[in-house]
């Protein structure tokens, strides 16, 4: 690990004023906020992230680490631990997909350490990204190419990719937040602002080293999930290579509002195979107003994976994605 200075954040206002050079996901950003450290310290040990300075934001947890259930929706402080949100009774009861996506992520130890903000900003597990001895990785070394395109790419993404990068977004919670129209509250040098979660992560766009739309020095302070008739009947289905303590190879977030058998409203997220937290909006439109039958679920899944691009070892993903989505829809119907 390279040398760095360590300091604790004093408060939001002070942090914001300093306009820290935290970049937008670039591996060579000079400053990194330290939350749980479970993604950051790991990647610093691997010499992928190389900050000169760490600013520990966990002291902000007192103000930005709680969960609040309001009539208009759910507010989750960015410094709340994954573990605390996963067992929050209001989240479990009214936003079960959120609780489920956290409960099924990582391990109990990691969930105690890791925060909601850090979880959303965790880096890809692409092995060529994580090992600097590989010289071709556009995310690490802009313009160097992508070793995964014709490398071992069984776990790489098929949705939202281009030829500059096919890395998979590994997080679970993000998939649910994409489906539930979440917003993130940000604080930074230019003040506070609130943006749709769906705009936080950028598409690769030939520049996969720029990962987020955060401004330099900007922090996530809160996640806001709007209330809706569909949140109670929501679930997160995670498919993995082993039963627990593993990232998804496919996942689906479903939130459903039914009128009898008919879909009044549905929200769909897809994980384990997309470049960023993925919302299947066209598939939602195809289901709305129709009875939720297996055939209609299959038709919607077909639409959701229609634009998938495979690169060899990950050719199995579109079919797995369709089946995962269909199963999740039928399970949500039975809730």
């Amino acid at each position: 690990m390279r040398p760095f200075t360590y300091e604790r954040a004093d408060g939001l206002a002070e942090l914001a004023r300093r306009a820290l050079q935290t970049g937008q996901g670039q591996v060579d950003a000079e400053v990194q906020f330290l939350a749980g450290g479970t993604s950051l310290i790991d990647l610093m040990k691997l010499d992928v992230l190389r900050p000169r300075s760490l600013v520990d934001i966990t002291p902000l947890a007192a103000e930005h680490g709680t969960v609040e259930l309001r009539p208009d929706g759910l507010r989750i402080g960015a410094l709340a631990s994954m573990a605390s949100v996963a067992v929050h009774p209001g989240v479990v009861e009214q936003y079960p997909a959120i609780a489920e996506s956290l409960r099924l992520a990582a391990s109990a130890q990691l969930r105690n350490m890791a925060t909601i903000g850090g979880n959303l900003l965790q880096r890809t597990r692409c092995p060529y990204f994580r090992d600097p001895s590989w010289t071709a990785c556009n995310k690490r070394l802009p313009g160097s190419g992508c070793a995964a395109l014709d490398g071992i790419n069984r776990n790489h993404a098929v949705l939202g990719v281009d030829t500059s990068c096919i890395a998979q977004y590994p997080g679970d919670l993000g998939v649910v937040l994409a489906a539930l129209d979440a917003q993130v509250e940000l604080a930074g040098p230019r003040g506070a602002r609130r943006v749709p979660f769906s705009t936080l992560h950028r598409p690769p766009g030939g520049q996969p080293h720029v990962e987020t739309t955060l401004l330099p020095g900007e922090l996530i302070t809160e996640v806001a999930v709007p209330a809706g008739a569909w949140t109670r009947r929501s679930l997160y289905l995670k498919i993995r290579d082993r039963a627990s303590y593993e990232f998804a190879i496919a996942s689906a977030a479903v939130a459903l509002d039914l009128d009898g058998e008919t879909v009044r409203s549905v929200r769909l997220g897809i994980g384990g195979m997309a470049y960023r937290p993925w919302r299947a909006a066209e598939a939602e439109a195809a289901l709305t107003g129709k009875p939720l039958t297996e055939a209609n679920a299959e038709a919607a899944a077909e639409i959701a994976l229609r634009d998938a691009v495979t690169n060899g070892h990950n050719a199995y993903k579109p079919e797995l994605g369709r089946r995962t989505l269909v199963r999740a829809l039928l399970q949500a119907r039975a809730m």
């Binding site: 749980g36 479970t38 310290i41 109990a108 130890q109 350490m113």
Partner: peptide, 27 residues
Amino acid sequence: CDHGQCGACTVHVDGRRVLSCLTLAVA
């Protein structure tokens, strides 16, 4: 593993189990 993948380094901090290999001592 020294990378948060095995749990061999598990300790308690303020009574909660965490991985000491991904925790900075200064923190």
